[in-house]
Every structure is written in C-alpha cells, then in structure tokens.
Design a protein around this nucleic acid. Structure first.
Lengths: 179, 179
DNA sequence: TGTCATTGCTTGACACAGCAACTATATCGC
DNA sequence: GCGATATAGTTGCTGTGTCAAGCAATGACA
C-alpha cells in the first residue's frame, strides 16, 4: 500500500550550497525547542492525570469526531499519523483497556473498524480538560492573537508545501471535544 | 512583548473550564502538523542521503561544536535532549560506525567522554549540506523574515516559560557547521 | 467463472526510547 | 582516614514505533 514514504523523491542532486547562516536559524531553533519542551510537558501532564499518552488521546479524539464514532483502521492511521501496524497496536491497547471496540467492517470483509466505547468517551472527556487546559496555559495564553495568526498562516504554508510533495496525511492531538 | 496580561508563571491550579474553542486552535494545529511533517521529511532526507538519523546528526553536531570536539556523556545527553541511557546507546552506535570515539575522562574516573572522529566530521559535513538545505527549502524559504521574527519571539517565550518550570534542557538538530 | 494482482489488516523481527537498578567513583562531614 | 551519600555511566526490562512478510478478501479481466 502506497508504500508510504516516497523514497527520497529527491536524492537532492545538486542542491547548491545552503546560504543558511546562524542568524537565520533563530526561528527554526525556537520552533524545534518549543515543540520538544511543549509536547513533553503535555504528554507528562496527560499521562500523570489520566494515564493516556498523546497518541492514545489523539486516536480517541479522532474516533469521537468520526461520523458514527468509528473509523476504519487505515483511516485512523492516517489521521493519527501512524503506520498501519502502529495503529493496529495502538488500538490493541485501547481495546485491552476497554476504551475502544473492534469489529468487522460490514462493507469490506478484509477491513476492521474501531469504535470508541462509552468508557473511552468519558476517559477522553476527562483527559480533554487536562490537555486543552495545558495547551491554553502553555501556548495560547503566551502568544498574542496576532502572533497566533502569523504562526498559523506561515506554518500552514510550510505544511501545505510538504503535503503537496508527500502523500502522507497528518493529524493533530488537539481539538475541542464535541458534545 | 505584548504580555497581554500574561497570567504569570503560576501553575494556575484554578484552571477549570478551558475557554479553548475551535477557532483558537488554528495556530496550535498548524504548529503540530508542520512539525510532524517537516521533521519526518528532514529525517527521511538525511537517512536516504547519508544514513544518519536526526538524533545522530544532532549528536555529531554537538560534538563538533564542543571545545575540543568532545563532550562528557551527560553533557551530550543534555544537549541532544536524550536520557543518560539513551545517549549511551546512541554513542554506542556512533562508535560502532567509527564516527565517534569514547575514552575515559581524565579528571573524573567515573566519567567517559565522546569525541568525534575525522570520519565523523566528514560524514557530518556532508550531511549538514543536505540537512541545512532542507531546512532552507522547506522552512526558511517559505516563511518571510518578519514571520520568522514573530515565530522566534513568541515561541521562545513559550519555551522559556516551560523551561522555568522544568529542569530539562534541550537542543536542536540544526546549526551551521563551523569551519 | 477462474486467475491473479491489489488492498486491508495483523504479525514477527527489530530499532530505539525511557526508567529503574547496578557498579564504580567522588565528595562531604567528622 | 572513614563511612554516608551523591554522581556518572551502563545495563535489563519494557513500551512503542517501523518495515517486511503473511493472510484473507476484493476486484479486474479473459
């Protein structure tokens, strides 16, 4: 399947010298460093308070927001940015913990679907408070609206450009929890 | 910077309801998504062209830029944002590949040091071109100087605030390679 | 309808991270 | 100097991810 990951579509033949100098790297460094610290922190908070990893949180979130609160395995994998095998194992864990149920896909006997359970919904809802609270306190409260707009705008441009070259899809571990 | 009533560094325990709504999450989503795509891509490029992971690249870079091109294990761990055991194993791999040498610390018999070898330097130098080129093409070329300034400024604020609460240090996988 | 490539998911082997336990050394208080 | 404690690094175990291979079902087509 899609053998995801274009094998270095660009072996980068003769990419000429990078005119990258120290001064230019400030934003890039801040980007990397902030992401590392922030995600580590959010993951710790979530783990400590609810015993959920960010990946699990994200998967549950995707399921809750899906049409009938269920998704095909591959669709879930795409949204959580995990490989097929990765999603199999993540769902295994969630099933073992009673937060997700797995059942055969009615329209394609090869496929299986994952559906979030009532327990999963309540666990997610509780975790959501912790998580969104962290996002707000660590990030949104610290960055002005104007800055947020700039960040969103410029980073989306970067992301879109990459998405155009790579097939892989993404997801994000945050979103308001409906209902 | 428009501290916009930055609610002090207080752990803010009274954070009940998160007034986080969908609209506010745009920047946050872009941040996560862009990071995921971008790092995946840079790692693929580096791996494909030079057989180095970003972590290895980063470690070599830290060593090259260190005083005598060598560092104590723990210092290296701090800079690469890896645990002590993690750095032990990363250095193991680099040693196995001939890019790093390990030797006893002259001033502290408990410690050991890692030093980059000539091979390591040349491998790093080659990889550096690919990596910095990627950073430039995927990120710097796509984000204007003004945007970069905003990103740097606001994200550093986020990062600094977190750093104040957490002891952990960070590092970043990029920097120009000196002479 | 029978064949065969493709697709969807799972499984096995492995890579690499962290934590906790361990060993060896250093350092502090006396 | 000597014991108690702290620190540096490694190792064992475990968690979680990937890739490659495998299996079952699908779908295109003669």
């Amino acid at each position: 399947m899609t053998s995801q990951a274009a094998p270095a579509a660009t072996p980068t033949p003769a990419t000429r010298r990078s005119p990258v100098n120290e001064a230019e790297l400030g934003a890039w460094r801040a980007f990397l460093q902030t992401h590392a610290r922030l995600l580590r922190r959010l993951d710790e908070d979530l783990q400590a308070a609810h015993g959920l990893s960010l990946a699990e949180y994200d998967a549950l979130l995707q399921l809750v927001n899906a049409p009938e609160r269920r998704l095909r395995m591959s669709a879930l994998a795409d949204r959580v940015l995990l490989s097929r095998s990765g999603i199999t194992r993540l769902v295994d864990r969630l099933v073992a913990d009673g937060m997700v149920e797995r059942f055969a896909c009615p329209t394609d006997a090869r496929g299986s679907m994952a559906a979030i359970t009532a327990l999963g919904v309540s666990r997610l809802r509780a975790a959501s408070r912790t998580h969104l609270d962290g996002v707000r306190r660590y990030f949104l409260d610290v960055v002005s609206s104007e800055e947020q707009a700039t960040i969103q705008d410029s980073l989306e441009r970067v992301s879109d450009r990459l998405a155009g070259q790579l097939p892989g899809e993404d997801s994000v571990c945050t979103a308001a929890l409906e209902g």
